[in-house]
Write a protein that binds this DNA or RNA. Structure first.
Lengths: 191, 191
DNA sequence: ACCTGAACACCGTTCAAGT
DNA sequence: ACCTGAACACCGTTCAAGT
């Protein structure tokens, strides 16, 4: 005799997402998720292969949210110059990290097991890559994009982990970095 | 009646360090460490307050190793120009990360619980800070150091997590980043 | 067909009892 | 004074038994 469904994958993912931000990755236990959706832990395995699988699902929904945000920023900025758009994108990424630090951490410093296949991150950084290509020119687009991505993710990681302990103005350091990188990556003007 | 000591803090830390690099942070369990030093898990608590405490000890010895390495590079480079020395330091940090990725990860993307007080990382980056000050000048030393540190740690994090999936030459991207950053941070030559 | 309790193999940690 | 077995409270996960 079939039993009516008492939960759904969507509900499980939503519960996981909430726990992720409120209690960190370690707080996303099968027990805690099961409690939230009103079911016993073993039942979760009907919709999810394992805890790692659930974390991967959380990473996927997070990357989709992030890509949407960055694409919107990129679209809004058509017309303004590329270095300004680069700054807008970097700031949008940083805002996202501030709003959802645990979700951001799942994408950019994942606890090894739940790591997404690296290409999954592609969409979220496509906009960034486009602007950087425009600034640096096609020959050095890849190197320039890697430089910017390394800088912005490194900056955010330091910020989130509290590594900026020498005082000073973190906003100013961010603006400084964007300005200098923008200038440094610009392709030499063709004579 | 006293029992002769069957292990020591040193031996425990050494076992922890070995497990860290062979099995990752998650492999550093109290059981695994106890097995290695030939003792039962509860005995470890005579020398170590908790697993987190042990991880902190591992982070401390790692940061000391790293600081020694960077200081040596800085000392060896006296005389050569600052941008070259900056490259040498960045490459030394990167080599260290390649040799001991798990130890490096413990310092620069720690599993929250074992995080060192941020200022503990100071010594290891003092050399870097010095060279950057020389390049950027005192007024922007802090912002410039943050830019370089963010870039190099971000680059290494991406590399270690396999995020460079678009092909291309990672070495070239690293050299590109160093060269452009070095140029971008240089203080305008006083007229 | 989904849900559950019971069970298993792991954790970190505490503590009374041994020497 | 150090070491140990037993125990506790947690994990993730499996599975036979319920409806």
């Amino acid at each position: 005799m079939p039993t009516p469904d008492r939960t759904s994958l969507d509900e499980i993912v939503r519960a996981g997402r909430d726990l992720l931000e409120s209690d960190g990755v370690d707080g996303v236990t099968m027990r805690a998720v099961a409690d939230r959706v009103g079911v016993r832990p073993p039942s979760l395995y009907k919709r999810v292969r394992s805890r790692d699988d659930l974390l991967r699902l959380l990473a996927e929904t997070t990357v989709a949210d992030l890509a949407g945000r960055l694409d919107a920023v990129a679209a809004a900025g058509s017309g303004v110059d590329a270095v300004t758009r680069l700054g807008d994108l970097a700031r949008a990424l940083r805002s996202f990290a501030h709003e959802r630090p645990a979700g951001y951490g799942l994408l950019f410093s994942p606890p090894s097991a739940a790591r997404l296949p690296p290409e999954t991150l592609g969409p979220s950084t496509a906009a960034l890559f486009g602007v950087v290509s425009e600034i640096a020119g096609p020959d050095e687009a890849l190197e320039a994009a890697r430089t910017v991505t390394a800088w912005v993710t490194g900056f955010i990681a330091m910020e989130l982990s509290g590594s900026f302990q020498l005082g000073g103005d973190v906003e100013r350091a961010f603006d400084f970095g964007i300005a200098r990188l923008g200038a440094a990556l610009a392709r030499p003007v063709a004579g």
